[in-house]
Design a protein around this nucleic acid. Sequence first.
DNA 1: ACGTGGGCTGCACTCAGTGCCACGCTGTCG
DNA 2: CGACAGCGTGGCACTGAGTGCAGCCCACGT
Lengths: 244, 244
Amino acid sequence: MSTSSAEPRRGAGTDAAAVRPPIREALVAAAFRLFVERGYEETTVDDIVALAGVGRRSFFRYFPSKEDVVFPDHERCLADMKAFLAAAPEDADPVRRVCDAARLVLRMYAENPEFSVQRYHLTKKVPGLRAYELSVVWRYERALAEYLHARLGGRPDGILHADVIAAAVVAAHNNALRSWLRSRGRDDAGAAVDHALGYAQSVFGDVPVPPRGAAPEDVVVVAARRGTPLWQVVREIETAFARD
Amino acid sequence: MSTSSAEPRRGAGTDAAAVRPPIREALVAAAFRLFVERGYEETTVDDIVALAGVGRRSFFRYFPSKEDVVFPDHERCLADMKAFLAAAPEDADPVRRVCDAARLVLRMYAENPEFSVQRYHLTKKVPGLRAYELSVVWRYERALAEYLHARLGGRPDGILHADVIAAAVVAAHNNALRSWLRSRGRDDAGAAVDHALGYAQSVFGDVPVPPRGAAPEDVVVVAARRGTPLWQVVREIETAFARD
DNA sequence: ACGTGGGCTGCACTCAGTGCCACGCTGTCG
DNA sequence: CGACAGCGTGGCACTGAGTGCAGCCCACGT
């Protein structure tokens, strides 16, 4: 078939070294049009390549599976995250660092709000895509956990703490991300994720004291009746320790 | 083929109401033998049904996909967990409750140590199985989170906290479970998971004070220099509040 | 003008998963 | 005792994802 001419066979890039082949973008665009129009499982790879005007074999050259076309930029983002963590200064607060690393993911989503929202609704409906997304999220979480292993490995239960912190940070991030996606990209994504990660950081992180002006010798005293729920006590501590 | 007679066609259960069809167990056993011998991807469903001596169509009647045969009892365990959470008394500490719910999963693994260890090595090698396992774990986590939603939904950021706590509990549990699996089932699984969940509980949970004998009017005082890492302060609090 | 190499295509094949129907067994009712 | 209904099973054919292979076209270098 390949009815229309459609994209005259990748023209002459001549000198242009740049430009990743537009064929990849064409596949993503065609796939998404069909997925939202008639559903993921109702769309075959043949449908996609027909609309994109390329051969079936080329699809699998660019995407190892049909699912991968739905998450075209996660590989790059994961690499960015690993690089960001590897570039962390030695004395950085590890929990803050992994929170900042998580923000990279949010930024990727925020770069294409419409695209992200469409994909969100797709993954919500299709179990196979949900599973794929989970494995992607898992790789992010592993990257954070491995970084924390290296920093906390010395402490007793360092690995356990690293795993738990990574999971909590990812959960907090995803909570904010999901609520932003549910708002169809209208809410302030940055504020929501800051709030959520702030919670995770307050639970696990070394509080960033002393603040600039305070004397580090100041002493904070907390008194609590036995029987007070721990979270309530902890909240008091956090307030007392928080920068003014 | 169906060479040998092999299991005389589900005999006469006559009055026996019990006994789930042995055909299911035969499929699981055959599948695992082949998976361990020659690998998951190198084993076809036809190989499995040939070894089990049943028709190919029956495989998919018992397991919706080839991956499901690797996790034959997770559905039941998930149902158990939901029932356990639904049966929680109103005044139970929610964090302790979800920790106890997580222990149900460990118990399931511990029921068949050799089987669990074999499966662990399988899922470690095969990406497809890893993705499947992640989606299973995700459903456990959702069950915990939904329970916590109902209990913490009232508090500010209740949903966020619920998501983070559920993720942390699951991560702590999985950390202990993995280390037990790596020990090939030799370590004390219960102790490891108690320790890991104790950490999660200490971070998020209401400490179970007052203990039986102590007067609830007792007062605990904590003093810390500004600049002390929060986790260190929290550890002191935990120690002070812990039952004697 | 000719050879070469890389990317694209088409083809054929394997295998997972599904719908359909026929068979045999069991228990039941006339 | 024989007909019948229900159900679990097996066999068959089909769709669609994913892969290996061989040919082809086009750009480029010589």
